[in-house]
Computed example of a mutant assay.
Amino acid sequence: MISTPPITITRLDLQRLERLLDSLEDYGPAAEALETELTRAQVVGHDEVPAGVVTMNSRVHCREESSGKDYHLTLVYPQDAGPEGTVSILAPVGCALLGLTVGQHIDWPGPGGKLLKLTLLDIEYQPEAAGDFER
């Protein structure tokens, strides 16, 4: 069963992500998953988001529970994905990370349909906590 913990996003991220969805030529499963996440999120101002919440351009430390492997990922817009350590918001794990709070975990289908469990261990950088509202 897929776990969907409560999530929080900023109003600015919501606006930018809605524009992204509106601009997509191919509105496939990734866009649908992101839209679902946006509709269930608690939306707050950029100055109200807690420091332990994953927002766009946050760098996170997480662990895949079955393998014990740690990841350091930066959640980015699709045009910024590519460099090692970045994950697009339109990737299944990127969409699932948005709005999570430290300590929460997500389940998502991996290759071959295997269910993977990722636990958010730390937010290494969050633009809002750093006062970087233009990212």
Rank of each mutant, 00 (worst) to 15 (best):
A81V: 00
L17A: 04
S88Q: 03
V102N: 01
L20I: 02
L34H: 00
D132G: 04
Y71V: 04
A30K: 06
L73N: 01
L75M: 06
M1E: 10
G110I: 02
Y77K: 10
G45R: 11
E32V: 10
E35V: 00
V43G: 01
A31G: 15
A33W: 04
L24N: 01
G103L: 08
H72G: 09
A33Q: 11
A31H: 03
D22C: 04
T101A: 15
A41G: 03
I2Y: 02
V54S: 05
D47Q: 12
V54T: 00
V49M: 11
I9L: 13
L14Q: 15
K117S: 13
L17Q: 04
L118W: 07
G85Q: 04
F133E: 05
A41V: 00
V93N: 00
E25F: 10
D22M: 12
E37M: 12
A96Y: 03
L120A: 09
E128S: 06
E37F: 01
Q126Y: 02
G45S: 15
S3N: 14
A41D: 02
V43Y: 07
P5F: 10
Y77M: 15
K69Y: 09
R63V: 15
S66R: 14
E35G: 13
T101G: 14
I7K: 10
L17W: 05
G99S: 11
H46K: 06
V60G: 07
D22F: 11
Q104D: 08
A41L: 05
D80R: 09
D26V: 13
S3T: 13
L20C: 02
I9K: 00
V53E: 01
E32P: 02
V49T: 07
